[in-house]
Design a protein around this nucleic acid. Structure first.
Lengths: 333, 333
DNA sequence: CTGAAAGCGCTAACAT
DNA sequence: ATGTTAGCGCTTTCAG
């Protein structure tokens, strides 16, 4: 086929203009004669020309590539969450004429190949998912790579991030329990080592306070995000205080575990105890009692992250952003 | 900082050799003097040099990029399945020194920008997910782009693909029911418009035959992969034939729907009716009765697809491949 | 075994 | 407003 052997020079010849003019047309330079623009464009169409990215990159120094980096040490990518975020990223990038490079690798700062493949010059910018190790990322940032983090890094970090409103979502969930009449509201918190765990607990606390309820320590249990831990936590909550009539659980998986314990004990949901989870995971939708939960705008996180790196690439310094969540009311509360 | 400004010429100068020699060392040319290799390598390390991909691409014509293309018209990417496959692809590619370009876009053959961004020259190869529209893919293949499809395309298609052994998995699932003593085994098939739907039904049929059972039409129901359709199908199966004591259901989601119907009717699983699903989805693992199911090697699909494109890029023409599945025995059968 | 020289396809001064 | 001229950083003949 006459495939990509066609170069800018061919277009120039066919249109009877100089290569520079073709280049100008390609890059939308306004001061080209309209009639020649026409000639060039039709030559492009006729020959089916596509500019060679590598050549362009070589001279401009811009690769048109943004990496989406997932730390394979925490292989969370089996979570549909990340697939959706990636979709959001890819599409937003596409619209701005960038391409998404997917890198699933151990984010180890001491591995020079990681840094090398992410160095400015190889890519124009990067989006990092869920880091536990800031070192590599900070290093890259210091090297001048535009980058944003999805999820909230350490409070002390200077990195730009996008995150869901964990605090607000938890607040709304808890207030919903209050509004439906629950008096003795408990919570199962997640891992407090993660900002999401801390913020969801804080949201719970504030909502209780604002609705005039108190928050004895006996009504706070701690899990590790797993369904088993949710079950255990629920059992101990119930044992410590049988008057509990509502519970906000920091993620759906723990909520599912908690619900199974209540079912065993013959506690009716939501009549005896109302339940609200967090994440809107699929399993909560098809569980026998459909779970009321807090939904994150997952695609939005990706799209926003993409928009932000692009801004940074263009020299801007966007502020970190927190995206609103929404309460999905179903059967359990 | 001074990072990406270092070029091959700098290395040459520091090592006191010509650029050509540096290039040879970089590309593992065997006939370079060992001592000079040493000098070059230490210069590379000292300066922290990374070759500029664009420059290399420009001269070699190889981009080092393989696209993973997901048709956004079917936004299946929320399924964790795709995230895992992508992980497999990305890692396998990385090992072969390729990078994964993620493209989520409407795969419309009439959109010239799709074809343009996938044309040979822009990328070295591509992996397509779950296509419904072969046109674009065939066009690209005709243009000489090395490509492989994950999932099975039309039987008539000449495309190279990797797929799970849907037939074998269904066969094993059904045989498992037979071996645990079920006599009257039924099935809920999925969408027969998809090869996975057809093959899983065929596997069921063969297993019944091989275990000396027959397969009256009253024991075959059809769903559309959703939990609701599974529930409906199960109800009609039970109504038509109350003697059913085992059922193979073409995916876990339908199985979950079916199980809820049985629960309502007081049918005990697995004692009255044993159940095997397909997919090993997460929800089946945390359902109140843990679902026995067939697992696909999802990461393997990705890794295999990557290995195959790489072979094609190197001029080979690998045969399509079918990866084995494995039966996961849990509580329901 | 090594170096010199010639581009790969494009853009960006610099002249007109 | 357009053309001319240099390269971008690398690989690859082609001579030695």
């Amino acid at each position: 086929m006459n495939r990509s052997k066609i170069t800018l020079a061919d277009i120039a010849e066919m249109a009877g203009v100089s290569p520079s003019t073709v280049s100008r047309v390609l890059n939308g330079d306004p001061r080209v004669n309209a009639e020649r623009i026409e000639r060039v464009n039709s030559a492009i169409k006729e020959l089916g020309y596509t500019p060679n990215r590598a050549a362009r990159t070589l001279v401009t120094g811009k690769t048109g590539l943004v990496a989406a980096v997932i730390d394979s040490n925490l292989n969370v990518f089996s979570d549909p969450f990340w697939g959706q975020i990636t979709t959001g990223i890819s599409q937003a990038l596409q619209e701005a004429n960038f391409q998404a490079l997917l890198m699933v690798r151990p984010l180890d700062a001491s591995d020079p190949s990681v840094v090398a493949s992410l160095a400015p010059g190889q890519i124009d910018g990067a989006i990092f998912f869920q880091l536990h190790d800031d070192d590599t990322v900070n290093l890259l940032q210091d090297m001048g790579l535009p980058l944003v983090v999805v999820g909230r890094p350490d409070e002390s970090s200077k990195l730009t991030f996008v995150d869901s409103d964990n605090l607000g979502g938890a607040y709304e969930a808890t207030r919903h329990l209050a509004q439906r009449g629950c008096r003795n509201i408990a919570t199962i918190a997640g891992n407090l080592g993660l900002s999401s765990g801390r913020l969801r607990l804080e949201g719970f606390r504030r909502a209780l306070k604002d609705t005039g309820r108190d928050c004895p320590e006996t009504r706070i249990a701690y899990g590790d995000w797993t369904d088993e831990s949710g079950a255990t936590a629920m059992a101990s909550l119930l044992d410590a205080d049988p008057t509990i009539d509502g519970v906000f659980i920091a993620n759906d998986l723990m909520a599912l575990g908690a619900m199974s314990v209540m079912e065993e004990r013959g506690i009716s949901i939501p009549d005896d105890v109302a339940v609200v989870g967090f994440d809107n995971m699929f399993a909560g939708r098809i569980s026998r009692q459909q779970l009321t939960t807090v939904e994150q705008d997952v695609r939005g996180l990706g799209a926003e992250a993409a928009a932000m790196v692009i801004q940074m690439i263009d020299g801007g310094s966007p502020a970190s952003k927190i995206l609103p969540t929404s309460l999905i009311v179903r059967e359990t509360a």
